[in-house]
Nucleic acid binder design. Structure first.
Lengths: 273, 273
DNA sequence: GCAAAAGTGTTTAGCTTACACCCATGA
DNA sequence: TCATGGGTGTAAGCTAAACACTTTTGC
């Protein structure tokens, strides 16, 4: 194959050669790399995200997504798992695997690197998406700090609902509204074809509880009969846990755990909006 | 809502406060940020990726994905579009939009930041995925440099086919095999539910040519009759371009352009392997 | 008993699949 | 004429949507 010879000069050598110096800080632009977290949960039939209040300029007093710098010796997934543990108490059993304790889920979302996204310096943020069951309160029992679960529709100022509880929410700091919107869209589309919705549920849950997760994330009403047939008819999706519960009222419902199947085929179809 | 008070101390202040200093290089670990490109095309019924030969240590002489440093004043998408233009001559009409000239496609793929992925220093690479029609040759007409289209199955050393043309390919440099595998999987899954496969085709193409793209990307054979009905029956997916061609032999085939519809619903089902 | 939620059965419509068959061109 | 790929028709089987209906609890 005529692909040039060993000693040829590469067009991109200008770029790659800079990588060659063992460590020459003047040879490349200095970046700070952070991880930001979109932590979603379902509380009382509403999709909520974890936000923290900023104590410093810029955007002082505004809500932001939790996050922090990537440390010198850690991988991006490790940094995200560490931040998640610090904020929620969810412990990462294996920082490399997507599964966390409590059946929670953590995955990389996207990276945001606009030169002006942080007015102070060049910051590239690797956003991650975490899905968690309904946790009692942000960092409950630990030291108090200004973190809360906020309704996603309030934070994004869309979908009709804003001004809940009489509070008119200010826009999120930095480009965090965009990041949150991307994370919500990722979650909404991914529960269509995967078993990810179970990450919003406790270890044992009923079919109705799982259906209410879908309804909260998608903001639609689903037919309980067809939903039941769909999820119980997909092999490996749900496995019976043995007991029943009446915590939702009505007739006792079977308890299930998430099965081993992670891909849902054929997918659960999201109704047209 | 009891969300703490204005002057409270935040648990993550330790992380966020460092962002507050206007520019203090000692306050955060120094990173280099690069973009690496997975550029895919379909040539002679095979999925191919663009690779360049490394001229320096480490991995000297090995093939790698094209890429380079993000400059101080450019966005991640701009950097990726610039690198793509330098490598292929595909000009980005709008660096922010995913669509490029020639109907090519560029999107962010994922970010790779293992502390030991580059032995010289801490490099975080924001990988991008580009899909392009069959280009004549890498940077043809420009200055010669060691770049080529390689069969994806050879680069990944899987799927049975290796040793093509008598050449036993060495593994890609760095973690680029992993990045390439992720990009290929993204492309394979995304053409299921989007019109992205048209990015592999020239501006005007026949239904059979589009089908051969699917067959090359998925590595399967599709029923020509059902495929034809599927793509021509989806409103907005294909629009007739007016003429016909016999460049594939046989009966003249209608020419189409990519329609405005970007989402394919219901999706094109990938056959079981 | 009544409300509420869990489940089951049934019908209809749409879609995929598999494959028989015809069409239009180049050699 | 024949090979080649383009394009249409059709019947079987699966799935989802819609909804009537029964079951089992708490109050």
């Amino acid at each position: 194959m005529p692909n040039g010879v060993e000693g040829s000069v590469y067009r991109q050598a200008d770029d790659y050669d800079r990588r060659m110096s063992p460590y020459d800080p003047s040879a490349f632009p200095p970046f700070a790399v952070t991880v930001d977290l979109v932590v979603l949960t379902v509380r009382r039939h509403a999709l909520c995200a974890l936000v923290v209040r900023r104590g410093e300029q810029p955007f002082q007093g505004r809500w932001a997504l939790p996050g922090g710098f990537v440390r010198d010796d850690e991988d991006l997934a490790m940094a995200a798992a560490r931040e998640l543990g610090e904020e929620t108490g969810l412990c990462a059993s294996d920082p490399a695997a997507p599964a966390l304790a409590n059946g929670a889920h953590l995955e990389q979302l996207a990276t945001y690197g606009d030169p002006r996204r942080d007015p102070r310096m060049r910051v590239v943020s690797v956003a991650h998406l975490a899905l968690a069951p309904d946790l009692p309160a942000p960092r409950a029992g630990g030291d108090a700090h200004s973190a809360r679960w906020a309704h996603v529709e309030d934070l994004l100022g869309q979908e009709g609902g804003f001004g809940r509880d009489g509070e008119q929410p200010a826009p999120l700091a930095f480009d965090h509204a965009r990041i949150l919107a991307d994370g919500v869209e990722r979650a909404r589309s991914k529960i269509e074809y995967s078993s990810l919705a179970t990450a919003f549920c406790p270890a044992e849950f009923t079919v109705g509880e799982l259906r209410r997760v879908y309804e909260a994330v998608w903001g639609v009403a689903l037919d309980p009969r067809n939903f039941h047939r769909k999820v119980t008819g997909t092999p490996g999706f749900l496995v019976p846990a043995g007991g029943t519960t009446t915590r939702q009222g009505g007739r006792p419902a079977q308890l299930f755990r998430a099965g081993g199947a992670t891909l849902l085929n054929p997918p659960m179809l999201r109704p047209e909006v």
